[in-house]
Write a protein that binds this DNA or RNA. Structure first.
Lengths: 138, 138
DNA sequence: CCTAAATGCTGTAGTACCTACAGGAGCAAG
DNA sequence: CTTGCTCCTGTAGGTACTACAGCATTTAGG
């Protein structure tokens, strides 16, 4: 359990803890090409370096912001080669935000409709429910 | 093409048109047990009745309100036996609405975060993007 | 009457993003 | 030496559809 200055032999379990990403998910990202195939120790186990921690943290933050894996892949290559302009990056973000706002409005409509239903129903022991009636309306 | 008074020989295509539900989706609902297995004509094709139109419309309306298929199944059996109380139905609706409101708040947080990112970025030809910087923050 | 288009059938696979095993190997501590 | 932990591969499941492939039948037009 020695890890002093040269901490560049990171096992998948430690990577998982340090990034708060599930081990199975890490392997999944590798299969999907979002993380590079790591080196393997003589026992066949994956060996990571600090750079992998940073890459995976980037990935996790993107996912928390709701970006698709395709978007994340996109953003990563933009970040990687250093050729990306602000305009390129902002475009990805704006598209995603438009998507989020669309979903937001859908959910707001939904919430209003459900609120109306809730209000219409006394929640009593009656077997004649206005909610069912409105769902069954011919 | 005769369909005058006794219109109780409905083909799946007509059911699809009348309910605005995809044919493949209708067959999927049947497989999942949300629609009863219909009669079959001598040619093996599905034959529906008016009651099926109503059931499928009920189903579609529930889906439009974002209920899961499990919830819909639940609501349908509540509606079917006539033993359901308002309280039972309202409980399903309220749970779902709580779920929707949860997602709504998640999306609002997301939108705020994305808006902040968008504002931080000039969208210029600069290759030093504040969005990438914030995503890569160590 | 014949043919072409439309409709229907079953069964399988793909979508997005993981998560959860099964069944096995290797290594360290007690 | 045994127990327990971590790790490995490969596969299946969940959600709600959608999209074929490959075939049979029905209907409309000429």
């Amino acid at each position: 359990m020695e890890r002093t200055l040269e901490a560049t032999h990171i096992a998948i379990g430690e990577l998982s803890v340090r990034t708060a990403v599930n081990i199975e998910t890490i392997r999944y990202y590798e299969r999907e090409g979002l993380l590079p195939k790591p080196l393997r120790g003589s026992n066949g186990r994956r060996v990571y370096a600090e750079a992998d921690v940073e890459r995976l943290q980037f990935l996790r933050r993107c996912r928390e912001l709701g970006f698709s894996l395709a978007d994340v892949s996109n953003l990563m290559s933009l970040a990687a080669n250093g050729v990306a302009t602000c305009a390129d990056v902002k475009c990805v973000v704006s598209k995603h935000r438009a998507d989020v706002r669309g979903k937001l409005m859908d959910l707001q409509r939904l919430d209003r409709a459900l609120a109306a239903m809730e209000q219409s129903c006394p929640g009593s022991q009656s077997t004649d429910c206005p909610i069912l009636a409105s769902l069954a309306q011919t």
